[in-house]
């Protein structure tokens, strides 16, 4: 099963590179869909069906919103390439590779191997699941053990909506009078 996850991650990496270097915005947004739907398949392989349901619908809504609102209204091509020289790119890639190697060499000791998770906290949640009365343990955690988190999440959602409405409001209308 691990090999399928590796294949999906390599596909996601290729899709993200293609998305960042696409010529026009339409193909960039569509290439982001490769990353999102690869994430859905990875969630299914890792036994997280709740997340897969949410992520597939979110990805469709994001693609639809971005294409219907942004790209169709503001179509523009990148006329010339980004103005950096090739030596600058080589230096950047070198720096990023060094950072990746440093982090990997540090984290080899800290992280446990894949699949060897030591369940200390989750053991309590799984054992006391009949107390919450929810057969789906994820919903039990979201709405019973950690419902305060969910309240904060709803507050953040309302705040984001108010922010969108405030930014998009017509402020210059009263100047005409």
């Amino acid at each position: 099963m691990e090999i399928y996850l590796v294949i999906m991650l390599v596909l996601m990496i290729l899709g993200s590179i293609n998305s960042l270097h696409a010529k026009d915005l339409m193909s960039a947004v569509i290439s982001l869909g490769i990353v999102g739907f690869g994430l859905v398949i990875s969630f299914l392989l890792l036994y997280a069906p709740d997340l897969a349901i949410v992520q597939v619908v979110i990805e469709i809504i994001t693609l639809t919103t971005t294409i219907a609102v942004i790209v169709s209204a503001t179509y523009e091509l990148e006329k010339k390439k980004i103005g950096y020289s090739s030596g600058f790119y080589a230096g950047t890639i070198l720096i990023f590779t060094v950072i990746i190697l440093m982090v990997v060499s540090r984290f080899t000791n800290i992280l446990s191997y894949f699949g060897q998770h030591v369940m200390r906290m989750a053991d309590i949640y799984i054992k006391s699941a009949p107390e919450s009365g929810s057969a789906n343990l994820v919903t039990g955690i979201v709405l019973h053990f950690r419902a305060y988190d969910t309240l904060g999440e709803a507050t953040v959602l309302v705040t984001a909506v108010i922010g969108v409405l405030t930014i998009l409001r017509h402020s210059g209308k009263k100047k005409d009078n």
Binding site: D50, V54, I61, N136, T139, L143
Partner: peptide
């Protein structure tokens, strides 16, 4: 949502 995969977030979206 408390019996099968899903829940409030998935249903709302």
């Amino acid at each position: 949502g408390h019996l099968s995969p899903g829940g409030g977030f998935a249903g709302g979206v």
